[in-house]
Every structure is written in C-alpha cells, then in structure tokens.
Design a protein around this nucleic acid. Sequence first.
DNA 1: GAGTGGTCTAGACCACTAG
DNA 2: TAGTGGTCTAGACCACTCT
Lengths: 253, 253
Amino acid sequence: MKDLVMPLFQLDKTSSVPLHQQIADWITRQIESGKWLPRYKLKGEAELAKDMKVARGTLRKSMQTLIRTGRIVQVHGRGTFVASHEKQLEQPLAGRFITFSEALAEQGLSFKTKVVSQSIGYPPENIRKLLNLKSKQKVFSIQRVRYLSGEPAIHMVNHVSCEFCPGIERLDFWRIRLFDAIEKEFGLQIRSGKRTFEARSANAHLSGLLEVPTGAPLLFIEQISFLANGRAIECSEIHMKSDLIRVTTTLTR
Amino acid sequence: MKDLVMPLFQLDKTSSVPLHQQIADWITRQIESGKWLPRYKLKGEAELAKDMKVARGTLRKSMQTLIRTGRIVQVHGRGTFVASHEKQLEQPLAGRFITFSEALAEQGLSFKTKVVSQSIGYPPENIRKLLNLKSKQKVFSIQRVRYLSGEPAIHMVNHVSCEFCPGIERLDFWRIRLFDAIEKEFGLQIRSGKRTFEARSANAHLSGLLEVPTGAPLLFIEQISFLANGRAIECSEIHMKSDLIRVTTTLTR
DNA sequence: GAGTGGTCTAGACCACTAG
DNA sequence: TAGTGGTCTAGACCACTCT
C-alpha cells in the first residue's frame, strides 16, 4: 500500500490564497471530479496534515469549510467521509450563499435567461432602505426571466447599487450573469446574503411572464447581498414556480 | 480606566462544556440581556483572550460561533462589534437550525399551540423515505396549529421515528414542545436540519384550520432533522401564513 | 504607526468509535 | 487498545483600517 491513494499535490505557500482555502479547493476538486466518491473515507487529519506539510489546525480549518458546504462529513471516533447526498440533484443553496444560476449549474440544469427590462435611476423607498442608500444614490435595476427546458420558471428583479459598479448598465446581461459581472468586472467580492421566504399569488404581470394562472402560488424570495465589509451591494425580488425548483437550506444548531 | 468595561466572569476549565462554548454562551448572554448593545465594540481578541486566560485560538472559535449565529460582526482592521439587526424582530432561522417555537420565542412573540390529532403507526412511503426507515418501523405523528395573538398562523404535521423515542405518545404536547421532548425526555441531541421551501395553495383542510380562503398562498416547508450521528429523527410538513411570519436565512459564500 | 483580525505552526491531551 | 476527531495552548507573522 504505497502512496496510491493520495496523489501528490502542490500547495503554494507564497500565494495570497490562504493555505486552508487551497486545501479546501483541492479536496472539492477531488470530489466534484469524481476521484473521491461518496462515502470515501479520507485519511486521518494528522496524516493528511503531515502529507500536506501543514499544521493540523490549518487542515481543520479546511475541513470546517468543507463541512459547511456539505461536501464532507466528520464523525468523532470514526473519521472523515465524502458526503453522500442520496439525491445529488437536490443540493442547492445548502449551507452557503450561492446564486440561483450557480445552483442550477451545479445541478446540471441548463437554463436560458431573457432580459425583460433594465434601467438606472433613483430607487423607491423600500429598495433604498434594503440597500441602506442615501437619497441621492442611484441603482441599476434589471428584470429577467429564467427558463428551464423552455418553460419560464423564475422571475427576478435585481437592484444593484451604482456606487460600486459604475457603467454596469452597458454590460450585456443576455450573456453575462449578474453576480459574475459584479465580481469580475468590478473586482468586488460578495460574501454573504440574506434571503426571506414568502408565498405569494401571481399577479397579472407575473402570470403573463411565468405563464401561470393569476393567483397561482409562487415562492417569493427577497434577497440582500453583502460585500466583505458588510455593505449591501444588491437586493432582489424573486418569484419562482416552486414545483419546478426546490429551494433547500441545511443548517446546524 | 480600570476593569469597568469587562466584568469578571469565571470560566470552568473542568466542565465538560468546551471553553469556546462557555465563552460564546457568556457573550450571548451579555448581548441578549442588553448589557452589550448593538454596535458595541468588543475589546480586541488578544486582550479578551488574555482577560479570560485562554489561548486566542480558543477565543476565535467562540467568535466563529457568534458570527454564524448572527450575534457579532468582525471587520478586519476595525474590530469586533455586536451585530445591529436593524429590525430585531426579523432575525429568525438565521445561520443556525432552530425550531419555529424557538424562533418565535427569540422574537418575543407569544403563541399558543393546539394539538389537532396524534397517532402512532406505519408511515406512508414518502415519510419512510425521508426518515430512512425500514418497513417494520413505526412513527409518532402529530398535527398541530400554532396561534399568534389569537390568529392561526402555522399548521404542522411532525413525524418522529419511534425507534429513538419509546413512549413519546404519552407526553402532553399541549404543554411541551416537540423538540424539547425529544432532547430532554429521551436525551437525544438534534444537530442539524434541512428545510425545503415551496409555495402552495391552501386546500380545504388547511383553509379551515388556518382560517384562510381555499387557494390562498401558503409557505410550505418540508423539514428533516438529524441527530449528531447523521440519523434522521424527525420530519415535518409545515404550512404557514407568510404574511404573519418572516422566514429568513443568512448564508455565507 | 498602532491596533485589529486573518493565517499558520507545532506541539499536547482528551473523548469517542470500533475491533 | 489503536485510530480518529475535538479541544486547547502559546507563540508568530501578515494584511487591513484608521489616524
């Protein structure tokens, strides 16, 4: 039993990416690529840390991340295992803040996005409150519909604070994802989000866009996204057909 | 400037409760009791750790817990602050798995619970799957309605695996909370939960119990609760009037 | 530059699980 | 009893924020 199990892998101790994150990323890749299958038992923390030439505390920090994101499971005297999500197709939004497009992509679902309208201007009172804006500040608003296998499934209205994203209105959101734009085009890092869930009836506008009867029940989500410094960057109102998409959270006491 | 700011507080280093949890609990008490108000700036980690005579790593572990439960906020070069939830009344289910009765209690809302029916028996196929039961295993099922200021707000059907809770049917659930019973009467620890959100229309049964028109939109939550060893102990189907109760999750990337 | 949190090390001992 | 994760220590250096 040589080092067949643990392929070599090089940590970059000079990188600005923290070691614990490099480790978590690498393990994530092992799992996502199928090299480590569900229920696979990892080596013990002590041995893993020695292999990787890091302190056990650093490795444990990676483990915490991987547990939070639902990729591994630890049981005290038994060991660390790749999580087995009985239904892989149903592991969205679990434990971490990911966008709906990321969630759909992770589930292997393809979708198309239609931009219904977009504009820049002074937001209504309620949006200004959610984003914590002063009265002179503008927002970029965009209304889109996402289609799953041809069927309209999600209606989104997003409001982005212009302060952080000058010129955002010139991007082509038929092609680019909103969060990709915010993060890659403007170098911002969205770190956390808050979602509030309600059930609402479809009004005339929504019933037309989502092709459901007026009054049909829709899952409504109000979302606020925050940067690392705690400032709100985006908020949105999302209506979705909950029979088409499952929204799930996994939480720990 | 003597030790006016930091009242003395005694850690029990011999207790089976981990130090980091004792610290988190103590800080939680400072905040909940109003001794530390929102936006209050805590002392630096180094100084706090010295005061408490623990290693900084231990203190940091507490901080992680308090951040996850939404009680404090840390900003790199600035410091640690008591979180200011603009609307304190709206901080439920955030970041950790708490029951609805706990969430209501934390919001200072009083409620009453009515037991509509309860029984023991072999569960239908879908419940058996959710709880991962063999065909010979029984569940305790209970149907309740929660009232907020006299108005019916939540309808719950819970199914508890009898394997872990023999005799649960003899408890008085007009008085006791279900999770309290599971944890205190049977010495089990519920560690995590998974919730799936949908929007549904009220059927005749629900419309009667919740006093809403048939077809009214209700927030539907399917919940599975897990013990520390990963075994499912409980699952439930919850319908609620989402105009009366806000269901929120805060997640980190 | 002073203060703060973020990362990391290299140990140690304990508690739980399983053979 | 061996192996594993859970807790804890006592340092160190770095990156960020504010003045």
